[in-house]
């Protein structure tokens, strides 16, 4: 089998994958990105680079990807449908491939209302489902989104998508995941998991449909710095479910940051051992990238497998 990326091979080989997330800065220096990349290099298989998350202007995902590649980590380029029409998406992804990027994660993107440019016009020319489908077709059938033939050098991305088991309608979430798999998604990263019971119910439905056999699901893990952060996610962010018990646990902890790390490690171990059908974790340490190595190491996921694609 010819692997599309390092992440592709790791997952196909049956390894429990580890991905992390690097959020580019709101300025024009890549110093921080490179610092985080150096730090994470030996602890993760690939890192996502967010695409102006929460609609805040930052260094672009693809430009950041160049820095990350340069630091020796495989990037997962996030591509949202919010800011680009089908022409710009394809142009950017052709460019990303030419620069050596091999994984792409397709998302709708957060609405601009909450970002730092709430008066912007949004695009949403294609949605995440269509983006998955069209990228797969681009690779497998050598066609532009319009259907026009790509004569040579079609981009051959390993295609990822997201799933949010905590959004509604709950019963449709697995259907929508199946739809994404049908469209061409090969790996899935989930929304941050805090409500383990709901995640397990979701995975149960995933297994019933046999979807875990068709796509690699990476469970989203977010270490929380404080009970206030937990409370904020619980009440201030749409489509997150944070149980009161977790808020309380952090509140009662002597050292909340330590406790946040412990919780993340417990979650990873639990998912790895108890939740069948999960093929890896995606650690989203929002503005707290430096704790990822410890979490990976203490979760028993270190060292990472060495992969040589050539």
């Amino acid at each position: 089998m010819k692997y599309l990326s390092k992440l592709h091979k790791i997952l196909e080989d049956g390894n429990f994958a580890v991905t992390a997330e690097i959020g580019p800065p709101k300025h024009a220096s890549a110093h921080g990105i490179r610092h985080h990349a150096e730090m994470l290099r030996d602890y993760v298989d690939a890192t996502n680079i967010t695409d102006c998350q929460t609609a805040i202007v930052r260094i672009s995902s693809i430009a950041s990807g160049v820095h990350i590649l340069d630091c020796g980590i495989e990037p997962i380029v996030q591509m949202t449908c919010r800011d680009r029409n089908r022409i710009a998406i394809q142009a950017d992804l052709l460019g990303a491939y030419s620069l050596g990027m091999r994984n792409v994660l397709c998302l709708s993107g957060d609405h601009q209302k909450f970002g730092n440019h709430p008066t912007a016009k949004n695009v949403y020319d294609v949605d995440s489902m269509q983006l998955i489908y069209l990228l797969r077709r681009m690779r497998d059938e050598k066609k532009f989104f319009s259907g026009e033939e790509i004569k040579e050098h079609e981009p051959r991305f390993y295609i990822g998508a997201v799933a949010n088991p905590f959004a509604d309608p709950f019963e449709f979430r697995v259907d929508r995941l199946e739809k994404k798999v049908e469209a061409g998604a090969q790996f899935i990263q989930t929304q941050c998991i805090f409500d383990m019971e709901r995640f397990e119910r979701f995975m149960e439905m995933v297994r019933e449909r046999g979807l875990d056999q068709r796509v690699h699901i990476l469970a989203g893990i977010t270490p929380l710095k404080s009970w206030r952060a937990a409370k904020y996610l619980q009440t201030g962010v749409s489509s997150m479910l944070v149980p009161d018990s977790l808020v309380e646990r952090l509140k009662n902890a002597e050292d909340q940051k330590r406790e946040g790390i412990e919780v993340a490690i417990e979650q990873i171990k639990y998912i790895k051992e108890k939740v069948k059908g999960v093929h890896g974790v995606h650690i989203m340490a929002i503005a707290w990238e430096e704790v990822v190595p410890e979490i990976v190491e203490r979760s028993g996921l270190y060292p990472r497998p060495k992969v040589d694609l050539e």
């Binding site: 709708s108 949605d127 489902m129 949010n164 929508r176 929304q191």
Partner: peptide, 8 residues
């Protein structure tokens, strides 16, 4: 092809 992950 909704709903997106922001529906709750």
């Amino acid at each position: 092809n909704g709903p997106c992950g922001g529906s709750q």
